[in-house]
Design a protein around this nucleic acid. Structure first.
Lengths: 349, 349
DNA sequence: AAGCTCTGATTAAACGATTAATCAGAGCGC
DNA sequence: GCGCTCTGATTAATCGTTTAATCAGAGCTT
């Protein structure tokens, strides 16, 4: 119905009302000087004609496209739906559209994806960088969502604090030997989460870390993590750095006949889609993507508004770390009394 | 560096070379009449200046924005990353950008999301409709990815055939009593998959269907599916209509001490991210999203090119159903000899 | 009454690309 | 030499919006 092309434009409204296009433009935008009653008439007429301003015309004149880019270097990441949804919602609320760009996991292609966005004339972009990639020079404001500990980060969940929450939770349940499970030793997010767990532990607790990428280099993709043996070594809690790894741990332990949470506890990160519906449901830590996206987008929009000259600049937000929230479900439970079906009893202290 | 705004434009190139803008435009686009050597000089100079055509200027003049919309009514669906990636890749290859629009699961907001895209001037859009929503009138070409059995569908995976594959696989393993697990009885995709399973069964096979949405209405969200009881009733295979339900079934059965695939088999649909890494890894059926996205986008682009007038029309593709591929992993195995730990032996025929 | 300010509107020039229409000149036939 | 075609280029209009500059007139001061 209301097509931006076949539909009415400013000049059609203007001639139809016997005024000039400039007056119509001023009336609709609220700028310039137009009498109150004329504003009323113009607005009314525009509405009943179903007027929709042409983004192309506006973009050409103002140099602003009204579109933000979203760069997801690893779109296969199951967090993506939440991120995309949150960013789209925040951007849409600020009057911006969201153009997605993906580099299919290819690190080199990240730059190309960014360039594509710039060529399309985005006013700014939100980048969730792959690993520790440095975004050097894009020709527009850039907000980076990574982890508070990386330099140049605009806003992110406080992954370190999330780790503390997990450690505190497990400590309260009486766990003393924790195996941290990550899948990528290069990931600063995962490292911060692991650091947080270690920092949140009590002095009498012990943690080791298992990096799946290392393991798979030797044993092949999708290999066993050898977790039942770890149970034999006295680990009573498995703190995965993402729900995907938590799920992998959970099913591997279950398959070996180990009961969760009676025998051992498993926790994750991110509260992904399956976390509430697996059995037992996953204890995890959730990041407030809506808050993060809102902060990132509004900081980005502020920067865009401030700088009339289109130039590269890293956006900074007032709050750069958003707390994570512990979600206690069924996969974590008290340590000790429930550890019954174990093959090796020596780990009980 | 190569900003589309601060950078060089046609007229800068033109004056710099002492020719007219029209000639530069013609040389770069290959239209009009320009001598071979001049084309060469212009192209060369444009390249070394890092010329990037302004999308806004082009869009204003041609009425084409070079952007496609992607409407995901249920962005929380874990299939989303694959879809978005495939669409973005296909669109990008065809020279189009992808603007996402989400309606946060709200059915009414789907129309609003579509309108937002139209207002932004997209040339066409790909819609994955929510349930059986009818896309009535958008002011641009629309390609719909749903399921071949729904009217108006442009292209989609052959969910029915995928169901047949599953049924054939389970039949070959000796399974005779199958429990189909879906989560939404309204979903035409899930119904087609279920129909496919039933159609692919041999005459001596029996299937029942468990709809989780029905169950959760009574027992609350995240409730137990009661699958161990189903095992007692003689079901040896659980064919979920999505990997998410397969995962739910898998963990519930494992938690009850039922071994997969020794005792019962579990299969899924969609080959989602966790399918290869859970234990046991999930036997599932994969849709070729790249092919589907490619067909949808190229059909859409063809329609856009054909119609100079911007109008609503449903796009049709040459091939409207893309076969699904069975991925056999560890969660499915032979029926009968392995069924040992069951409480109720009567189901063995 | 001349000069001033203030209001409410118009004029016209961009923004950057595309493209139909035009034009200058060369080559060529008659 | 006139007219014709063909090539290679230019001219100029156009898309729809924004906005600086201008302008006409009313009201007010001195």
């Amino acid at each position: 119905m209301a097509s931006s092309r076949s539909g009415p434009n400013l000049s059609r409204i203007a001639t139809s009302l016997g005024v000039s296009v400039a007056t119509v433009s001023n009336a609709l935008s609220g700028k310039g000087r137009v009498s109150g009653q004329l504003v009323e008439r113009i607005r009314e007429h525009a509405a009943e004609l179903g007027y929709v301003p042409s983004q192309a015309g506006r973009a050409l004149r103002t140099g602003r496209s009204g579109v933000l880019g979203l760069v997801l270097p690893d779109i296969a990441n199951p967090l993506f739906p939440k991120i995309a949804q949150a960013i789209e919602f925040a951007a849409s609320a600020a009057g911006y559209g969201v153009l997605i760009a993906d580099s299919r996991g290819n690190v080199a292609a990240q730059t190309e994806a960014i360039n594509r966005l710039v060529e399309r004339g985005v006013d700014g972009m939100v980048v969730i960088p792959r690993r520790a990639t440095r975004i050097s020079s894009a020709a527009c404001p850039v907000a980076i969502i990574d982890t508070p500990s990386t330099s140049g980060n605009t806003v992110a969940a406080d992954h370190w604090q999330g780790g503390c929450e997990i450690a505190g939770h497990l400590a309260g349940l009486g766990h003393r030997r924790i195996l941290i499970i990550g899948n990528n030793q290069e990931s600063s997010v995962q490292n911060d989460r692991a650091d947080g767990i270690r920092s949140g532990m009590r002095p009498d607790m012990h943690a080791e870390t298992l990096w799946i990428d290392r393991l798979e280099q030797d044993s092949g993709s999708g290999c066993s993590l050898g977790l039942p043996e770890k149970v034999g070594q006295g680990f009573t809690a498995f703190a995965a750095l993402s729900d995907l790894q938590a799920l992998r741990a959970l099913t591997e332990l279950q398959q070996a006949g180990i009961n969760i949470p009676a025998d051992v506890s498993v926790t994750g990160f991110d509260d992904l889609i399956w976390s509430p519906v697996v059995t037992p449901s996953l204890t995890t830590v959730r990041m407030d993507m809506d808050a993060i996206a809102g902060i990132a987008v509004s900081a980005l929009v502020d920067t865009i508004r401030a700088s009339s000259i289109r130039q590269s600049m890293l956006v900074t937000a007032a709050m750069d770390r958003v707390p994570m929230q512990l979600i206690v479900r069924q996969s974590s439970g008290p340590c000790g009394p429930g550890t019954k079906n174990l093959r090796d009893g020596e780990h009980v202290r």
